[in-house]
Computed example of a mutant assay.
Amino acid sequence: MCTTNLCIAFYVLTFCILGWFGALALILIKSTKDQGNVYVVDPIACWINSELVNPLNCFKGEVIKPLLNDLSTAAREWNAIVGSKPKMNF
C-alpha cells in the first residue's frame, strides 16, 4: 500500500471521479425509465453548450484570433525590415 501524500491524493481523486460517474449513471438510468431522456439529457446538453462551448468560442474569437492577427502582422513587418537585409548584425 502506498503511503505518500501524492499516492493517497491520487486514490481519493480516483474514488471521487468514479463516484461522480456512478451517480450520474444512476440518475440517467432512473430518469430514462421514469420520464425519458428529456428530463436529464437535454438540460445537461444545454448546460454543456452554454457553459463550455460558448465561452470557448468566445475565447477563440476574442483572444486567439486577434493575437494571431497581431503576430502575423508583426512577422510580416519584421520580414519586410530584416528579411530584406540579410547582412544586418544584431
Rank of each mutant, 00 (worst) to 15 (best):
E62C: 15
T32N: 10
V53C: 12
V38T: 04
W47N: 03
V38H: 02
S31M: 03
W20P: 15
L24K: 05
V53P: 13
I64A: 02
C16N: 09
P55M: 03
S31L: 06
C16S: 08
T4W: 08
D42Q: 07
D34K: 04
V12L: 15
K60R: 09
C7Y: 13
T14A: 13
E51M: 05
K60N: 11
D42C: 08
W20N: 15
L56E: 04
I17N: 14
V63K: 00
G22L: 08
K60Y: 10
P43G: 02
Q35M: 03
N5V: 13
G36V: 00
L13K: 13
L56W: 04
I64S: 06
V38F: 04
S31I: 01
N37F: 07
V40Y: 00
A25D: 11
F10C: 13
V41N: 02
W20E: 14
A45M: 03
L24C: 12
T4Y: 08
G61V: 01
T4M: 08
F10N: 13
K33M: 03
F15V: 14
A9T: 08
L18G: 12
C46W: 03
V41F: 02
I17L: 15
V53I: 13
L26P: 14
V38I: 07
I64W: 03
G19D: 02
S50C: 09
W47Y: 01
I8P: 07
I29W: 10
I8A: 06
L26K: 07
S31P: 08
I64H: 02
E51Y: 07
N54V: 15
F59Q: 02
Y39K: 12
I17A: 14
N37A: 05
E62W: 10
C58V: 13
V63A: 05
D42R: 01
L26S: 11
V53E: 09
I29C: 14
C58H: 12
W20C: 15
T32M: 04
L6H: 13
L56N: 03
F59I: 06
P55R: 01
A23G: 09
Q35Y: 02
C46S: 06
V53Q: 11
L28D: 10
V40W: 00
I48E: 02
D34E: 14
T14L: 14
P55G: 00
K33R: 03
A23T: 10
K33N: 01
S31H: 05
L26W: 08
Y11S: 05
D34N: 09
C46N: 07
I8Q: 05
K33P: 02
C58T: 11
T14H: 09
C46H: 07
W20K: 15
L18K: 10
Q35R: 05
L18I: 12
W20V: 15
L6N: 14
N49V: 12
I27M: 12
V41C: 03
L52N: 02
I17Q: 13
K30W: 05
E51T: 09
A25L: 12
N5K: 07
T4A: 11
F15R: 09
T32H: 06
N54W: 12
C16L: 12
L18P: 12
G19H: 01
I17K: 14
C7Q: 14
L56F: 04
I44Y: 07
V40K: 00
C58G: 09
F10Q: 11
F10P: 12
E51K: 08
I44H: 06
I64Q: 03
N49F: 11
T14V: 11
L28G: 14
